[in-house]
């Protein structure tokens, strides 16, 4: 079809007029500050989780309660019971903060949802910390229910359950940072899901089973897992006279891992947002 008038073609494709070059300069809009935007992301994520995640929270809790009941037949009491109860309680944190958050960020990244945040003047840390904080918060009811149920089932004292107020946020920070990093770094969303699942399985096997019967190599792997320190800190407080220095030491490890993994997740977010 040769219907194009000949004079159209040469200059026709020019979108630039050459003479018009009075570029206007505009002031930049305000930057969103870290805390207000962190709070905004946290609130939004919390409401999101309320809508979409309640069934999964039930799953997380029932899974841990089921493990407690199952282990009741194997373990009679003493230090083994302590690690079973502590491990199942922290498992709820691992399920939500590690597994679900890895899936969330994996899907967000794959579907182009990160563009929304990347075109807003919000600090990357606010997006990652807001989401991680919301997911960690959502583990609170499940963890409490599991811990109380476990204590009653195994006849452990409820005296020091308040230590969960430190264990949940610190283990939550470590695990959700890891989950967010998995989700943001995995090249495909399925891989993010697999990584999250593997992390949770590790937390399940290495955290719930009493360590005394494990071979050396497995115990070493257990020491590498950040949730272990949350489990140990919690388990120590069941004793008649807990060694608070060791509890604090374990919690400090959680906090340290949390800072590092959240920093890695923030870096991963920055990397994923601009491709």
């Amino acid at each position: 079809m040769s219907v194009v008038p000949a004079e159209v073609l040469p200059g026709g494709a020019r979108a630039v007029t050459g003479t018009v070059r009075a570029t206007v300069t505009a002031e930049l809009g305000p930057r969103a500050r870290l805390w207000p935007s962190l709070v905004a992301v946290y609130r939004a994520q919390l409401s999101r989780a309320r809508v979409a995640r309640i069934p999964l929270l039930f799953v997380a809790t029932f899974q841990s309660v089921g493990i407690l009941i199952m282990m009741r037949g194997v373990v009679d009491g003493g230090s083994e019971a302590e690690s079973v109860v502590a491990g199942s309680a922290v498992l709820v944190v691992a399920f939500v903060a590690l597994n679900l958050l890895a899936q969330y960020f994996g899907q967000l990244r794959a579907s182009g949802g990160l563009d929304h945040y990347a075109t807003l003047p919000v600090p990357p840390a606010a997006v990652v910390l807001g989401a991680a904080g919301a997911y960690a918060s959502f583990t609170v009811p499940g963890t409490l229910v599991t811990a109380v149920f476990g204590c009653v089932l195994f006849g452990l004292p409820l005296t020091h359950l308040w230590v969960l107020a430190a264990v949940i946020p610190l283990a939550g920070a470590a695990l959700s940072g890891l989950g967010a990093a998995f989700g943001l770094l995995a090249p495909r969303p399925e891989l993010a899901t697999v990584l999250g699942q593997l992390g949770m399985s590790a937390a399940l096997l290495l955290g719930v089973l009493p360590p005394d019967r494990m071979p050396e190599a497995v115990r070493f792997a257990r020491d590498l897992l950040p949730s272990t320190y949350g489990v140990e800190a919690f388990a120590r407080t069941f004793g008649a006279d807990p060694d608070w220095a060791l509890v604090l030491g374990d919690l400090a490890v959680c906090a340290g891992v949390g800072v590092v993994s959240l920093a890695v997740a923030t870096w991963a977010y920055r990397r994923a947002a601009v491709r």
């Binding site: 409401s47 899907q107 967000l108 579907s111 182009g112 949802g113 929304h116």
Partner: peptide, 9 residues
């Protein structure tokens, strides 16, 4: 953008 996944829920 074309995607609304960040706001969907």
């Amino acid at each position: 953008g074309q995607e609304s996944t960040a706001l969907d829920e």
